[in-house]
Amino acid sequence: MEKSQELINYERIASAITFVQQNFKSQPSLSQIAEHVHLSPEHFQRLFQEWAGTSPKKFLQYTSIQYAKSLLSKTEQTLFQATFQTGLSSTSRLHDLFVKIEGMSPAEYKNGGRNLKICYAHYSTFLGQIVIASTEKGICYVAFDNEEQGSLQELIKKFPNALFSEEERQEHRSVLSFFEKNWSNIQEVKLHLRGTDFQLKVWEALLKIPTGQLNSYQQIATQIGQEKASRAVGTAIGSNPIAFLIPCHRVIQTSGLLGGYRWGMIRKSVLIALESAQLNKAADEII
C-alpha cells in the first residue's frame, strides 16, 4: 500500500522527535534535526509549521517533561477555554464532547460477543495505519497498527465468538474525521464497549480531559472516587480499546514523565505536542 504524504510527514516528525529525545542534552540545532530527517532546514521548518501550526522549537518544547509538568499542574482557566465556554470559538472544538459510551450488556460481555456482527476495515491516517471496527450499536475498536494482521488478531481475541466481516461502514468515516486535525465539523460517535464497570468509569473520565491538557493517573483515580487505585487506573487505561478518541495519551505520571502508551511513546509525544500546539495556536488567534 502506497503511503500518503501525511503519513510520510508524520514519520519524519516522529523521527525528528526521537532524535531530539535521544540528544536533548546537546540541544541540537534546527539544521542538525533537519539533517537527521534528510530535509533542508527551510523545508523542515515549513513542514513543522504546516503540520502542527507552530514552529519546530515550540513544538519540541511541548514534548518536554517541563511542559508536561506545567500542563499537569495547570488549574486556572485559559483565555481560549473561557472563549470556548462562552460559545465564541468555532475552530477547535473539544472533540471529546462528541463521543458517547454504551457498555455492553452483561450477557454480551460474558459470551465474548456471541450474536454480534463486527464490521472492520483498515485505513491510512497521518499517524499511521489504523483498524476501525463497529457493531450495530457503535464503534467497538480503534487501534494503531502497521501490521494489519496483528490488529485483527487482537480484535478477535476480544470478541472470540463474534461474526467478523471486513467492510467499510459510515460510522467508520465519522471516526476518521477525528484524524483530520480539524475538529470544527466532526460528528457524534457512539461507542459500544466491552469492559468492567471500573474500566468504563476510567474511560469516561479520560473523555473529560480537555484537548491540550494532561492529567495524572492519581488525578483520574480521584475523579472516579478511587483515590488509592491509581495503579488499577493505569491498567484500565492500558486496556483502552479506542485509540485517540478515548484520549489515554493525555495521562502521564505525577512526576511529569510521559509513562506508557500501548501504541508507542513517539506517537504519544506527537499527540500531546500536536494538541498543545493547536490549542496555543487557537489562543493566539483569539488574542
Rank of each mutant, 00 (worst) to 15 (best):
H249F: 07
L127R: 12
F198K: 02
S216K: 03
S4Y: 00
E154V: 08
N115Y: 04
Q22N: 08
D145K: 08
A14E: 04
R262W: 08
I246E: 14
Q129D: 01
Q253A: 12
S105P: 00
D145V: 03
A282P: 05
T235V: 06
S134E: 02
R169P: 05
T254V: 13
S165C: 14
T78Y: 08
Y67H: 00
I130V: 03
S31C: 07
H36P: 01
M104I: 04
F144L: 15
F84V: 05
E11L: 02
G238A: 14
T222F: 13
L97R: 13
K157S: 14
K137E: 12
T91C: 09
G103I: 10
F198I: 06
Y67F: 02
E148F: 06
Q213L: 15
A16S: 01
T211I: 15
L245I: 14
F44C: 01
S31F: 12
N280W: 09
N161C: 13
D145S: 15
V251Y: 13
Y10H: 08
I242D: 06
Q278H: 11
Q27D: 02
V175K: 05
Y141E: 04
V189Y: 03
S269V: 00
E50V: 13
S15V: 10
D145T: 13
Y10N: 06
F126W: 04
G87C: 02
T86Q: 04
T235Y: 08
I8S: 05
G256R: 01
Y123D: 01
I224A: 10
F48A: 02
Q49L: 02
F59W: 07
S90E: 07
L88S: 08
L258R: 12
S216M: 09
T135N: 07
S26L: 04
G212M: 13
H172C: 12
Q149F: 09
S174N: 07
Q199M: 04
I156P: 14
E166K: 02
T18G: 14
A52H: 07
G212D: 12
S26Y: 12
V202M: 00
W263T: 05
M265S: 02
Q22W: 01
I220E: 06
Q226S: 11
A143E: 00
T222N: 15
P160L: 10
T222P: 13
Q170V: 11
M104F: 03
R173D: 08
Q49S: 08
R46K: 11
F84M: 10
N161L: 09
K58R: 13
S151I: 06
R267K: 02
W183N: 06
A107S: 15
Y261K: 04
S73E: 14
C119G: 04
L207R: 05
S151K: 07
F44A: 04
A236Y: 14
S31I: 11
E285N: 11
